[in-house]
Write a protein that binds this DNA or RNA. Structure first.
Ligand SMILES: [Zn+2]
Ligand SMILES: [Zn+2]
Ligand SMILES: [Zn+2]
Ligand SMILES: [Zn+2]
Lengths: 136, 136
DNA sequence: CCCTTAGTGAAAACGATTGTCAAAACCAGT
DNA sequence: ACTGGTTTTGACAATCGTTTTCACTAAGGG
């Protein structure tokens, strides 16, 4: 039904996009567009904030980065594996671990179908204090 | 530790707070502060937008309403049962069903502990098309 | 090299939420 | 009812993350 391939619009290889991607490669925490912008500046490869936002948007659309909206409404991004998964995030240091939950997936679908809902999707994230941060 | 009692600050029962609560009682969808503000105005019992936000904040702190942050960063509120639960929300009409998932709760705790995390919390929401909306 | 077109970014616009602060509503205690 | 102190209200300004604008730059195919 819906259009097939996500129609990945034209993609020119620019210095900026490469920079954003490379910074993401090197981090395992979820990071905000603004923080990424700062990191890029410090690292020498300055990129306009607007472009950082656009690059992240594109990467997210292409499914190359995961998006996480905090309780405060901030949007964070992270380079993740491509399979469907969820996250266990440290509330203090941001350290993130990808977790798979086959059981949860089927449970979610079952519950939803049970109520007559279709075209189901879900969000599931775990938060806590990682070993390092909780041993304060 | 910090200051004394959690001091659930004084709570005067005002016309405004009553109005906000009553509107929430009558809805089963998650609603934004602004929409609530409009509903109140239309209904005749006008309440300042600032006050609507404050009332909702208070209700949320008191655990009397559930809070949901959309992917777009908007904060929505809903009068829910007091036990811990999650939601199955229709993407189209907003109709919401509360769901319990004991299995998920234990799974979440187990996974987190397995990775050495403590003080765990989680967010889990299901989205889909309800029977009425999907029969289009 | 040239031209078309996508990409860039500084600055302005947005929009939900929060802060400010003077006026209004409450609530004892006279 | 009158009074003084505290709480609440709400119009308006201020925040702040994100998006839009739009003139300018630079991929990259021919
Ligand atoms: Zn991920
Ligand atoms: Zn899942
Ligand atoms: Zn609820
Ligand atoms: Zn739960």
């Amino acid at each position: 039904m819906s259009s097939d391939a996500p129609a990945t619009g034209p993609q020119r290889q620019t210095r900026q996009r490469t920079a954003v991607q490379s910074v993401l490669e090197g981090r395992d925490e979820f990071t905000s567009a603004q923080d990424l912008h700062d990191l890029l500046r410090r690292q020498g490869t300055a990129v306009g904030l607007t472009t950082v936002y656009r690059s992240l948007q594109a990467l997210a659309d292409a499914g190359q980065v995961d998006v996480l909206v905090t309780a405060e409404g901030q949007t964070l991004y992270r380079r993740c594996s491509s399979e469907h998964h969820h996250h266990l995030v440290c509330r203090t240091c941001g350290r993130t671990i990808e977790i798979a939950g086959p059981a949860v997936e089927t449970w979610a679908d079952a519950i939803a179908r049970e109520h007559g809902f279709s075209d189901i999707s879900h969000t599931l994230e775990l938060f806590g204090s990682c070993p390092a941060c909780s041993s304060g």
